[in-house]
Amino acid sequence: MATAAAHETDRTAAYGTDDGATDAYERAFDAAVAADERIEPRDWMPDAYRATLVRQIAQHAHSEIIGMQPEANWITRAPSLRRKAILMAKVQDEAGHGLYLYSAAETLGTSREELLDKLHSGRQKYSSIFNYPTLTWADVGAIGWLVDGAAITNQVPLCRCSYGPYARAMVRICKEESFHQRQGYELLLALSRGTPEQHAMAQDAVDRWWWPSLMMFGPPDDESQHSAQSMAWKIKRHSNDELRQRFVDICVPQAESLGLTLPDPDLRWNEERGHHDFGPIDWTEFWEVLKGNGPCNEQRITQRRQAHDEGAWVREAAAAHAAKRAARGPLTTETTGATRA
């Protein structure tokens, strides 16, 4: 298995099967979490904590790489060279973020190959938002503003997540993501202030992306199966509804500045709560898309699998070449061309 020695936990050797020892480790773990210390790869952790993290980090990583598709859909049609460069850089970042996250997951003893296999066979999920299509250029803007905006709202608290490698990956990702949201906003602003056709294109995109973006925060708190435990472990810091409300409050004035309308007749400021009220979310749609009945579920996973399968001979070739070279003996700098540290 491709786990690093630096990450590996030889659990039976280190801890034995002695219940007393495990109890002591559990107390140490709980105390570390309570004191807001970070848990690091080789520390003892409860199995369920490890499983929750693997599931969450994997889903996050999968979302990054599946999320490349709806935007890559517009790279070849970007309407100006400036926009094209921005979009390419953004989609590239997503591949990079996927890599950071798979690395974080690997510190928990699960290889990337294993995780990809689970994605390809449908045993692990990615964010449902990417099962919606990008029908116009404005969708690229709506994804940047709303989808990345929602993602950032979710992710900023994860920079303080109790698991060190995940928190560190998130710090890096959040730093890079801030450009994503701004470019989306700027793109929509240009459209909104452009020709009537461009303005209509922008409004249409916001109409289609608004509700799915709100669903990105997950089911309401009383229906969310993993939330309570994740909060206790400080993997999660705020509840789904809390973050969703925060996002709505942020978006309302931003939409105004854009000159675009959010498609919710019930959206209004509630003086008493100090927040915006908003209309009911169609959770049937959410669960259906999650189950696989969204407009693009099949398409996204098929393309992913296809890329992986079609790339197999390339990965094999490189591995075979490395094996041949290893068999031939040590490399000289001349053949490696490697630069000196």
């Binding site: 491709a2 690093a4 590239q92 990079g96 890599l99 950071y100 690395s103 690997e106 990337r112 990956a169 890096r172 890079e176 990965r315 490189a318 591995a319 070449h321 490395a322 070279r325 490399l331 490696t336 061309g337 490697a338 630069t339």
Partner: peptide, 22 residues
């Protein structure tokens, strides 16, 4: 961080692309 590569040269190049692109 970490990454996957078939050999040291590619590890170095992938690292350059991934961890120093800014």
């Amino acid at each position: 961080g970490s990454l996957h590569a078939p050999d040291a040269e590619f590890a170095l190049r992938n690292a350059r692309d991934l961890y120093t692109r800014r």
